[in-house]
Design a protein around this nucleic acid. Structure first.
Length: 424
RNA sequence: GGAGAGGUGGCAGAGUGGUCGAAUGCACUGGUCUUGAAAACCAGCAAGGGUUUGUAGCCCUUCGAGGGUUCGAAUCCCUCCCUCUCCGCCA
């Protein structure tokens, strides 16, 4: 949610900023609703004030054993006026709220212009794609040849976009997750969290997947609806919701491994083969919750922590700044890490690191006590994948393949594989 | 799942229809005293929102959440959530 004060004071500037995303914010309509809200709310509070004064004098009059019938009548009249006013006020307030919840976050000035991923800007490249003396295969044929993928059974059991991974490849997948968790907890000072995979709608509103993107989520039937988390960002960030953190506790740095569940209704037809786009995948997620002043620094540290995973695994990648048209709904700025996939001869997203500013904190009422000002202020939230485990498995398979289709275990993972060095 | 008890300010804890946003204690902040500290004493000390040039003033809201009754609700009624104790079930 964008700060309502900013919306009121500079609605047209906001509209200009959001237009960079291709979002059309009707500033005039908003300001018109705001004008109505203001006069209705002032009227509302004046009436309540009158009622409070009247009711108090009834108490005083009654205690003197004097007649109160006239005062009660006044009270009733005030309530008549109030109920009409309240109906109008609530209507306007809900219209304003709907507009505000629909509004994406303001973009940082650093975000490049552009309408699609073609306009994203590569800021940095790390590592050199390996020279193969043969035609590198993609992970699907590698896995099939090894007999360690079973998409057919997965389809029969669960449907399309589910995977079954077997034997040493499943172990490698698990090893990647263990390796990432250890790296982040031991080298990068994150606190490991085990968190629920099912969450209430309120938590998803907090991190801004709801109300707008319900179709991307899996919803569990029941009296009180629960949703499968699309990312550990949801439970991790909500850890600080409805709370006022002490300054001395900050920053919070959380890491969690969870499965992620995405309905991805809009993406059918893309990446239908293999592990790239699944309804269920594993991810190690990094979240930092910091003072506003420290948030840009936190984003670059978090991004470098995700990069470290790729560097330790010796996987070539590039760091990309997402352009205005490609950036996520709640993000102020986003850096993607794209790993080199020899089988596709392309860089593919493997991590997305975003600064949300106070956008999520405002929705979930996550605050900190600023000792300097003595005030409770909104925190800033940052999250990023560190990394998506399924896609990392893909990258390891394709980058570490041999001419005969066997796969070398990256050096840092060998201890996690009981000393195994080769899958064949 | 069943039975019972309870959810009030940072914490503890009073308050069962009327000047209650809420006694009291602790904690915290400032002051007096003191060489300094402690003690004692004095004072202050919730959050959100509206109005506003305003971290001034005034006003509104908030006693687990949401509804309701009433001129007036922490207090009465309904629904839900959570915590504790006992029983049942269970990895």
């Amino acid at each position: 949610m964008i700060d309502p004060k900013i919306l009121r004071q500079s609605a047209h500037d906001v509209a200009k900023n959001l237009a960079r995303r291709g979002y059309k914010f009707d500033a005039n309509l908003y300001l018109q609703l705001e004008t109505q809200r203001k006069s209705l709310q002032v009227e509302n509070e004046e009436l309540k004030n009158k009622r409070n004064i009247n009711s108090k004098s009834i108490g005083v009059t009654k205690s003197k054993n004097e007649d109160i019938s006239k005062l009660i009548q006044i009270g009733e009249e005030i309530n008549d006026l109030l109920s009409g006013n309240e109906r109008e006020l609530n209507l306007v307030l809900s219209q304003i709220k709907n507009i505000e919840l629909d509004l994406p976050n303001l973009l940082s000035d650093k975000v490049p212009d552009g309408t699609s991923e073609k306009n994203n800007i590569v800021l940095k490249s790390w590592g050199k794609p390996r020279e193969f003396g043969f035609m590198p295969q993609d992970h699907v044929s590698l896995g099939d040849r090894l007999g360690l993928f079973d998409f057919e059974s997965a389809g029969r059991i669960s449907g399309s976009r589910f995977a079954i991974i077997k034997g040493p490849l499943a172990s490698l997948h698990r090893a990647l997750i263990q390796f990432m968790l250890n790296l982040h907890t031991q080298e990068h000072d994150y606190e490991e969290i085990y968190a629920p995979y099912l969450v209430q709608s309120q938590a998803l509103i907090g991190t801004s997947q709801l109300p707008k993107f319900e179709s991307d989520l899996f919803k569990i039937a029941g009296d009180k609806p629960l949703y499968l988390i699309p990312t550990a960002e949801v439970p991790l960030t909500n850890l600080v919701g409805s709370n006022v953190a002490k300054e001395s506790e900050l920053p919070f740095k959380y890491v969690a491994h969870t499965p992620c569940f995405r309905s991805e209704a809009g993406s059918y037809g893309k990446d239908t083969k293999g592990l790239i786009r699944q309804h269920q995948f594993e991810k190690v997620e990094l979240v930092q919750i910091v003072k506003p002043k420290e948030s840009e620094e936190a984003l670059s540290s978090l991004t470098s922590h995700a990069e470290n995973v790729l560097q330790e695994l010796q996987l070539p990648y590039q760091l990309v700044s997402l352009c205005a048209g490609d950036i996520g709904f709640g993000a102020n700025i986003t850096y993607d890490l794209e790993v080199w996939l020899p089988g596709q001869q392309a860089f593919r997203e493997i991590s997305s690191c975003s600064l949300y500013g106070d956008f999520q904190a405002r929705r979930m009422q996550a605050k900190w006590k600023n000792e300097e000002t003595g005030k409770n202020e909104f925190l800033h939230t940052i999250n990023g994948s560190g990394l998506a485990a399924g896609r990392t498995l893909v990258a390891v398979m394709e980058n570490y393949q041999d001419a005969d289709g066997s796969i070398h275990i990256p050096e840092v993972l060998i201890p996690y594989m009981n000393g195994k060095e080769l899958i064949n």
